[in-house]
Nucleic acid binder design. Structure first.
Lengths: 204, 204
DNA sequence: GTCTATATGGCGATAGAC
DNA sequence: GTCTATCGCCATATAGAC
């Protein structure tokens, strides 16, 4: 029973902390606000995670593991590259739209502690080399044109992530503050991103 | 003489504040640190800019006007689209590499005050409509394939900005922390971004 | 494990002399 | 216009009862 209580509280804290940290960042977040959102008090927060820093690190790790997801699925599936890319982009945009503050949060806090970031990356199980190898194979088979595979990966990520991170700017500049119009636009991008990339790399 | 003094101090403050705010953001920045970097004391800071908020707004406005630069040059020049794009990407990457914290700073603080952001955008003289019209003209002339011009603009910006904003991630993931290798990579991207886009949009 | 109360330090901002 | 000194608040963190 005590165990259960503990697990419940810890989970509540983690959820609350994630909400607050993602919106406000490490510096902007307040332990009081996290406590409120978790329905407990500050003292208990410090009982579970001794410092704000430790709590933040736990959240960053959790969140970061989300932002570079099924990237490896793209590698191990044996679908044709067009399908792989389509599925990845679509599910990735879905994920980002459900967590629209996530990209900015990660970009924002990325500079804070590079060593910690490096450690997390190892832990995600993502192996860039495998992704690059997959791209290279496609190039050597003559299905896509030759280019630096790192460029290709960065392009896929940039085309997907940037429009979500720059949401406020885009909503104002392109859609006169119409948030639904922005959403529709991103929804359509699920397809147009893939088209844009394939037009660029496919050898007909 | 007093005037000169004032101008000097104000300029020193603005420079210092820009450095600190860009690296630490609104929440992370400290008035004390800005004062130190400007070689003055806190009180004087408040004498020039009454509050931290006002100082920040001044800096954000200044910095934001940098990040969406010569975008309009791309429109008014009558070079062929290939050249326009090449020149824009190259000069834009140059700008970002000289101010590598700038993209994250803008993305980070973009959510803080959307109305203020909207006001600044008006002030930059950037008219998305003109850019879109230019793209549409190229499409109707059959030089580039038909697509949503907003997609095209976002793609250009995302491909250019994302790799700079995600620098720590990329340096670790792709270059085993070799910062020079990262720089070389970005340097090469000046050309590969344009190639990537042109391959996608040009009608041969 | 969870709470109330409090210590401790830091930060934005102001008062007031020069 | 520039400085020193200080106020007042708020945030992290701890002490100690239950």
């Amino acid at each position: 029973m005590t165990e259960t209580k503990k697990d419940n509280t810890e989970e509540k804290i983690l959820n609350a902390a994630q909400n607050v940290f993602i919106k406000k960042g490490m510096d902007g977040a307040r332990m009081q606000e996290i406590a409120d959102e978790a329905g407990i008090n500050k003292a208990l927060l410090h009982y579970y995670f001794r410092t704000k820093e430790k709590l933040f690190d736990a959240i960053f790790k959790k969140v970061f593991s989300k932002i570079l997801p099924n990237l490896m699925d793209m590698v191990y599936s044996d679908l044709p590259i067009e399908k792989k890319l389509g599925i990845f982009v679509e599910s990735y945009i879905d994920l980002l739209m459900k967590n629209p503050f996530l990209p900015t949060f990660v970009l924002k806090e990325m500079n804070r502690n590079p060593e910690f970031l490096a450690k997390i990356i190892k832990g995600t199980g993502i192996q860039p080399d495998k992704i690059f190898a997959m791209f290279k194979k496609e190039m050597e088979a003559g299905r896509i044109r030759k280019m630096d595979p790192r460029d290709l990966l960065v392009n896929i990520l940039g085309l997907s992530i940037f429009p979500i991170a720059a949401r406020p700017l885009m909503t104002i500049m392109f859609f006169e503050n119409d948030k639904e119009a922005y959403k529709t636009f991103i929804e359509r991008r699920k397809k147009t991103i893939t088209e844009f990339i394939l037009h660029s790399i496919l050898i007909k």
